[in-house]
Design a protein around this nucleic acid. Structure first.
Length: 558
RNA sequence: GUGCCCAUAGCUCAACCGGAUAGAGCACCAGCCUUCUAAGCUGGGGGUUACAGGUUCGAUUCCUGUUGGGCACACCA
């Protein structure tokens, strides 16, 4: 029999043919195939008959009857039923489900990879913290969500570039330099002369100490040595930025996140990109001078008021380099760009898009895409934690990694819908119990590893197992979940919702744990043993693949 | 005041772009280790999906309004 991997699209295709026959005029209707919640409703269901009831002015059940009659024969479908108001429920043959085990074992780490992106270039910009301090929890959420999203999009067939944008020019860098300089002079934040908005964290003292000690720091591809001159503002600025970039790099590495490209705001100025963008905007006719400032008429593109581009002091506002940066992204050939940011930046969306529209060079209206994550609050002993020793006013990503580990931190920060506010409960993330989904999933993987190790046979031989022996309700549940996996990747990629992977893995782990408790694998009957081992080996493979997308390890032992 | 996000079991969260009896875990109660990992499993109780309308065969989902929470509203980034 033919091997079908994507049952949803296969069935959808069958219905498309039936639809052309039954209702040629309604062929543009979207055919939706879904997985019923109840097993008695079959493996897949279609509501097409109900959708057609109105245009055809016939009863849904009659239409369902006609559709079923016109449905092409498929050897993966066992039976088709009409149910309820006019649902068409489809049941797969056992053999079709069982074939998934071979498919998973054969594809290995590649199982779940789909061709949605068709190799097109896509860029995800995330974290993009200012180099003015250690990364905080919010950046951590951005890092976890952004990185998982990249993994998911890669699995979905996109050619993904991970990018980090440093705002290393502008007022806040001036502020950083000033704070470090004061520390170099021995002035501390509790001194009355400390400026209002100066950075107060202990890390500023570390930077100052390293600068005065003429230390060398390596960040990205550059080496920078502290000059030790208290009055050399250029040198202090340069060193402080390099020092903090290195610190952020180390945090990200500890978090298992790697970027392909680092873009610097300062480079946009030094390479003339900002001037060029301003020139293009003026030439496009969407700017005007008023009150000694240059304005962009962003109200032409949906903004609620126009925005200043060039201030009366001659400097540019931040959104000009932002537009220049995104123009560069466009020129670099990314058909799709996704910016993952904290929701507190949501007001930039309209402005950046407006700026790009004003360029009049054919950039699509909704480009780029945005994923905005809501705030994170940290809880410990039932109380909100607001400060860390090192940063002072906020909890750092490093604090979390040190306290609960990389795996749990990544899981908890990525396993929620980005639109929901997130409470990070340190005690829960640390707990090694049932409440903690990370360990629940990892434990399932480790259990399977142990069984396979105890068995000690050659794993490749499992490909030859008789999958027809996999017939129990537990086995069927696992088979169906493994069939669903590519669908999960597709949804997560389309909705830009990597948390779906986390929920899926919990379901898969649960199905395995139930199976584990209900039946033994290392039984005397050789054929049954091989079939069961093949099944759980495949399940472990899917767990491992899914955990890899989350950036969480899949341990052999726990 | 304006814009964006959110509201589902006592708690933390799901619900496959409008589907069938709204699901898990925790907590509570009752069980399961001479067996491949009990960091596990099985069973039980627990809901007016914040509230009020609307759209239709059908709404947790879409629309309007109200309430409550968060965020943003600079010639800062």
């Amino acid at each position: 029999m033919s091997v079908v991997l994507n049952f949803k699209s296969h069935i959808s295709e069958l219905f498309a043919q039936a639809l052309r026959e039954v209702a040629p005029d309604a062929a543009q209707i979207d055919i939706l195939i879904e997985r019923p919640k109840q097993v008695s409703h079959g493996d897949y269901a279609c509501n097409l008959a109900m959708q057609l009831a109105r245009p055809l002015r016939k009863s849904p059940r009659d239409i369902a009857q006609a559709l079923i009659a016109a449905l092409p024969v498929s050897d993966v479908i066992e039976k088709v039923e009409i149910a309820g108001a006019g649902f068409i429920n489809l049941f797969l043959t056992k053999a079709a489900k069982q074939a998934i085990v071979h498919a998973v074992l054969h594809a290995g780490a590649g199982y779940g990879h789909i061709h949605l992106g068709a190799g097109r270039k896509l860029q995800v910009e995330f974290v993009s913290a200012n180099p003015t301090g250690p990364l905080h929890v919010g950046h951590g959420r951005g890092a976890a969500v952004g990185d998982c999203l990249c993994n998911v999009l890669h699995a979905a067939g996109w050619n993904v570039t991970r990018e980090f944008y440093y705002n290393d020019a502008g007022a806040q860098i001036e502020n950083l330099m000033r704070s470090v300089q004061l520390r170099c002079k021995g002035i501390t934040p509790d001194d009355p002369s400390w400026p209002e908005g100066g950075y107060r964290g202990d890390y500023i003292a570390d930077v100052a100490r390293a600068y005065m000690a003429r230390e060398t720091v390596e960040a990205d591809d550059q080496r920078t040595t502290g000059k030790g001159e208290v009055d050399d503002e250029v040198a202090i600025r340069h060193f402080a930025v390099a020092y903090l970039r290195r610190e952020q790099d180390l945090d990200l590495r500890a978090f298992n996140v790697e970027f392909d490209v680092f873009s610097l705001e300062s480079a946009l100025y030094s390479e003339g990109k900002v001037e060029e963008t301003v020139g293009r905007l003026i030439a496009s006719g969407h700017t005007y001078e008023q009150d000694d400032a240059l304005w962009l008429r962003t109200t032409d593109f949906g903004d609620d008021k126009d925005r200043v581009m060039r201030k009366t002091d001659g400097g540019y506002t931040y959104f000009v380099p932002d537009v220049a940066y995104h123009l560069e992204k466009w020129r670099r050939g990314f058909v799709r760009v996704i910016n993952e940011q904290g929701a507190d930046h949501h007001s930039t969306i309209t402005r950046v898009r407006a700026g790009l529209q004003a360029l009049d060079i054919g950039i699509p209206k909704g480009w780029p895409d945005y994923v905005l994550h809501q705030m994170v609050t940290v809880l410990k002993n039932g109380e909100e934690v607001k400060i860390s020793k090192r940063a002072g006013s906020y909890v750092t990503l490093r604090d979390l990694i040190d306290e609960v580990g990389c795996d749990a931190t990544r899981y908890f920060l990525a396993a929620r819908h980005p639109d929901s506010q997130l409470v990070f409960d340190i005690d829960l993330a640390k707990s090694k119990t049932n409440d903690n989904p990370v360990y629940y999933i990892q434990y399932a993987h480790a259990r399977i590893s142990t069984v396979l190790e105890t068995w000690g046979g050659e794993r490749l031989s499992l490909l030859q197992a008789d999958f027809g022996l996999l017939d129990s309700e537990y086995e069927t549940a696992l088979l169906q979940l493994m069939i669903d996996y590519p669908q999960v990747i597709e949804s997560a990629a389309q909705d830009l919702a990597p948390h779906l992977v986390a929920f899926y893995l919990k379901d898969l782990a649960a199905a395995f744990h139930s199976y584990y408790n209900a039946s033994r694998f290392l039984v005397d009957d050789e054929a049954v043993k091989c079939a069961r081992l093949a099944l759980i080996a495949a399940a472990a493979q899917v767990m491992s693949n899914g955990l890899a997308l989350l950036g969480v390890s899949a341990p052999e032992k726990m």
